[in-house]
Design a binder for these strands. Structure first.
Lengths: 132, 132
DNA sequence: TAACAAACGTTATATTATAACACTATGATA
DNA sequence: TATCATAGTGTTATAATATAACGTTTGTTA
């Protein structure tokens, strides 16, 4: 495993647009935004997304079928992800809280399987939306 | 809110099949299984699913786009859900662990929004699959 | 019974994701 | 150097998941 992953052309393009976005992006919205760069088909987007997820560069927000850049340097291989999601404005924030992560990584259910990975999504109304 | 919800015909049919299933069911697989009962269109399934989720009778496993019956009597309105998912056999188990639930319900991220609801999905290989 | 809400049935369509196949570039190695 | 494996690319087609929109029926309640 190299510390610094080498990205392919398409992977760079897709990561770039996700990193610059203010919120989670959907696959087809990424597609429409990169057609000028010569990417024409969903397959190309999904392939890049898959690799970027594997590398831990991005995360999928399962409840929204959308993708965000990873902001927490410590999850190169994303085994422990947690997000805060506003149900009004759709804003997503990655939660990096050592205690929470430790608590959940150590959690073992009595019924018995050993967990390799978890994903946690919190929902509410963000401060900004509450004001309106 | 009545303690015992009254279900409509289609809601009953859909809930019934989900409750009898051994694992999570997908919407279209539900559809194919109820066509003999006169349900013909996805819309009818999705409408029933939506209501059943609202009532807390079933849960959606977001990472699988599939649905399971609620086994834990205490989550009539599902504000706090956690699941154990086997990545090999696709088995899903609802986790009902008071400590975990309390810990997460009380969790408040410093950045500040108050959470109404969460969903947690753990992944691993179940005991049964480990043996093979 | 009139009025309303909730559920229903149906057709059409939108959105999300994958299959399959041929081609290209790169680096490892026999 | 030849050849092999691996990873990435481009493309067409299609599968799988989900919702919109419309009109009708049913059940509740004022």
């Amino acid at each position: 495993m190299p510390q610094t992953q080498i990205l392919s052309r398409n992977q760079k393009i897709v990561l770039d647009i996700i990193e610059k976005a203010k919120g989670p992006l959907k696959a087809y919205s990424i597609l429409f935004n990169v057609q000028k760069k010569g990417i024409n088909a969903p397959q190309q987007i999904y392939r890049a997304l898959d690799k970027l997820i594997e590398m831990g560069k991005i995360h999928k927000i399962e409840s929204k079928n959308a993708f965000v850049a990873c902001r927490s340097s410590d999850c190169e291989i994303s085994k422990a992800t947690a997000f805060s999601i506003c149900e009004s404005c759709e804003m997503v924030d990655e939660i990096s809280d050592a205690k929470l992560s430790k608590y959940l990584s150590g959690f073992n259910y009595r019924k018995g399987m050993k967990f390799k990975r978890f994903n946690l999504e919190f929902f509410g109304i963000c401060k900004k939306c509450k004001k309106d």
